[in-house]
């Protein structure tokens, strides 16, 4: 078994890991009951799955330029995925698209109540 064959097998293993993470996200999307838990499942291929398939591409590449191109892909995905996840979670909480009976703890409701009290008292003073 030469080095190229070993690299082929290694990148195939990493590809399979990424594919399985995508499949887990798909199953979670189809089966989970509310947007917040679906969000938890859908973030799997965005960072971890992408990391695995990029490692697979990097093992196959013969030039350093290709590997250098892989880092910005992961960097931009890591920068933008939390932004969209934050916005979706915020909108899901505010429009009450979540199942309260599935929540163990809701720490955000305390902060929302406090902000509303502070705004009400501030309006009284002015």
């Amino acid at each position: 078994m030469s080095l190229a064959d070993a690299l082929d097998v290694a990148s195939l293993v990493f590809l399979a890991l990424g594919a399985l993470l995508s499949l887990a996200a798909g199953v979670g999307l189809a089966r989970f009951p509310d947007p917040l838990s679906r969000m938890h499942a859908a973030t799997k291929p965005q960072i971890a799955g992408l990391l695995f398939v990029l490692i697979a591409v990097g093992l196959q590449s013969e030039q350093w330029g290709t590997v250098a191109m892989l880092f910005p892909i992961l960097l931009f995905q890591m920068l933008t995925a939390p932004v969209s996840a934050h916005m979706v979670g915020r909108a899901a909480y505010r429009t009450k698209h979540l199942r309260r009976d599935l929540l163990v703890i809701d720490e955000l409701s305390d902060a929302v109540d406090r902000a509303q009290r502070e705004r009400a008292s501030g309006e009284k003073r002015t």
Binding site: L15, A19, S22, A25, R38, A42, Q46, L50, Q60, H97
Partner: peptide, 30 residues
């Protein structure tokens, strides 16, 4: 809800990126 659809769209794009990478490994181009 539309939020479920946006979550699924995000995940679809992530899967698409991973599939592009897998196809590159298979065909050996960049």
């Amino acid at each position: 809800s539309i939020l479920d659809r946006m979550i699924a769209t995000d995940m679809l794009v992530a899967t698409l990126i991973c599939t592009f990478a897998a196809e590159m490994v298979y065909s050996g181009h960049t």
